[in-house]
Amino acid sequence: MNSLTRTENQALARTVLELDVNNHPGVMSHVVGLFSRRAYNVEGILVMPVGSGETSRIWLLVNEDERLDQMVKQVEKLEDVLAVRRHGAEHEVFVRLEEFFL
């Protein structure tokens, strides 16, 4: 990923992953650790508690990659991950945030 220019990187197809997780201090480490150990870059992360705060929702913006199916299966195996949903890059969650990253 490091050798790609910013333009090339942005040209890659993107996927948005939506995770429902238990809200506790270790859950982010569990999730991102699965990506970092495979040198699979996470382009964007957004997390907020949901409802009473028992659970959180994690939104991940990642590049489409032949490893993505395996990544999703690995994320689904995590004890604190309750559900994983896949969305296309057109999902607006990160698009709407773009104004904070200008």
């Binding site: 270790g26 480490s29 569990h30 650790g33 150990r37 004890e79």
Partner: peptide
Amino acid sequence: TYGLSIPITKHNFL
């Protein structure tokens, strides 16, 4: 210990 054991356990607790 918690951080060190994340990638080598099925699950861990602090």
